[in-house]
Amino acid sequence: MKEKPELMINGKRTDGRAPNELREIKIEVGPLKNAEGSAYLEWGNNKVLAAVFGPKEAQPKHIADPEKAIIKCRYSMAPFSSLEEHNRSGPNRRAIEISKVTKEVFENVIILESFPGSEIDIFVEILQSDGGTRAAGITAAAVALASSGIPMKDIPYGVSVGKAGDRLLLDLNKLEDNYSDADMPIAIAPKKDEVLLLQMDGTLTKEEFSKGMAMAKEAGAKIVKLQREALEGRYK
């Protein structure tokens, strides 16, 4: 673990991708019949299930908002999801934070006023993880929500941009993430390119930030297309 591996060899990444290349993404709509909406997403080696329940009466009652729905969100990683050590089950502090920022993404796009006094539950289960799970989770949950019929003003997507040395890399896998010089998960509402989630750590100049955002948006066009195709395929 100590030695830092070479992340770029002859212009290619460890998994053979170009710097601005996404991993392969597959989206399946509606695998979970009990949920109001659901999606299964494979994003490289990430395997993610997202499910939406509700709208239903907000519980406990005192948290209900008489003007609009409230969103509950749980992002959770399976104890067996990582190639590294066994995780403890249940949400840890990292998962609680990711649940919070994911919830905030969907509070933006769901038309909450449609369902006063109710709650909408969004569950993101990471079954297998290989870097970029929060972006994958948001992309999957957006599809699950859209398929549930809950009114939304946009279908957001997630993606991450990182940096190895002085080179920007789109969509870091876990190995790259472990040794990268910066990692920046982003979620965007594509209609107006509104930034709904932005996190970063590492080292980034302003110029790199701007370039990274441009890379993210370019990839976003592809992700949005896959989300739409998956949804359309469901209702053909």
């Binding site: 920022v101 905030e104 933006n108 932005l198 970063m200 750590d201 590492g202 980034l204 930030f209």
Partner: peptide, 9 residues
């Protein structure tokens, strides 16, 4: 820039 965090809806 060393870290960023956006919050809220």
């Amino acid at each position: 820039i060393r870290a960023m965090q956006k919050g809220l809806s």
